[in-house]
């Protein structure tokens, strides 16, 4: 309840900010920043689609590149018929999306379940921080795809390998952010806890974790972004999912469907990120992370 009030206040203050700007810059309420931005967006989109349509019709593009209208038509068809199943090479995009999301959900959840507690431990103990930092720094920059052969060899199963790749590549941002957040809890909060004589456990659960929560959530957000990037790449070498859909359409040399898949991947990524952005705001309480 209290949280709801906070977010309401935030939107209120945003609205009043915009009002201020409006009265500043122009007289008409219809020409504020957001309306102008939306106008520019629509204009540039129309320009892009128009140029594309023209270029494709005039054969200025590579042979086989579809027109904008054809691509939109395909997008409409795939999104209105998302769930059909005519075998693994002719699967509705809805099914493929769910398969990808399921892999991400499993791998990402496992990664978070490891990364958050481990990050808390590493953040609390300066010794653990220094001891484990070399592993993290060494493994963090490794490309997710570098793990793929190893995963396939160990698990001999594409499904498990997909989950493994997600886990191993999405663990690091959450781990480092959690450890950083926990290690950098304001000493004042800890002083309060000490002067009250709070136990170590109470301090960890009531002070340190809530204080580090904005960092933890932004780590989770980055990890989610990485998971979504990685799954598409990994699935090109696995059997199903959105990544495989693209790979399959490449084998069919049918470009409109590749474009449709790119659009849907982007849209789903955007939605996932927005969910985490909202969650970040929810735990911030006026703090900037």
């Amino acid at each position: 309840m209290a949280f709801k009030g906070t977010t309401n206040d935030m939107t209120l203050s945003n609205a009043s900010l915009n009002k201020l700007k409006v009265s500043d810059s122009s007289q008409s309420p219809w020409l504020n920043e957001n309306v102008k931005a939306a106008g520019l967006f629509l204009f540039s989109l129309a320009l892009f689609l128009g140029a594309w349509e023209l270029a494709a019709n005039m054969n200025w593009l590579t042979k086989g590149m579809p027109t904008a209208s054809k691509t939109i038509e395909e997008l409409w068809w795939w999104s209105t018929n998302p769930f059909f199943d005519n075998g693994p090479n002719d699967l509705g995009i809805g099914w493929n999306l769910l398969i990808s999301l399921r892999r991400v959900a499993i791998g990402y959840t496992l990664a978070s379940l490891i990364a958050v507690p481990l990050g808390i431990v590493i953040g609390i103990s300066p010794i653990a921080y220094k001891a484990f930092n070399p592993y993290i720094q060494l493994l963090k920059p490794v490309s997710p795809l570098a793990w793929l052969p190893l995963g396939l060899y160990i698990f001999r199963d594409s499904e498990l390998t997909g989950v493994f790749i997600i886990l191993i590549s999405s663990i690091w941002p959450t781990l480092t952010n959690t450890a950083f957040g926990v290690a950098n809890v304001s000493p004042e909060y800890l002083d309060v806890s000490k002067t009250l004589g709070a136990s170590k456990l109470r301090t960890i659960f009531k002070i340190i974790i809530p204080a580090a929560l904005p960092n933890i959530v932004s780590g989770l957000r980055i990890s989610m972004g990485i998971s979504w990037l990685v799954i598409v790449a990994a699935e090109m070498l696995l059997g199903t999912g959105l990544g495989y859909f693209i790979w399959n359409e490449w084998n069919n040399l049918y470009i409109p469907n590749i474009l449709v898949a790119i659009f849907i991947i982007g849209l789903v990524g955007l939605i996932l990120d927005s969910v985490f952005a909202a969650f970040e705001k929810f735990v911030a309480f006026g703090r900037q992370s």
Partner: peptide, 26 residues
Amino acid sequence: PGPDRGMVFQNYALMPWMSVEENIRF
């Protein structure tokens, strides 16, 4: 440190995620 001494901090040191009531309750 101990609760026989109550401390008021220069920068308040309130927990941002706790309401007024929750800060005192803690």
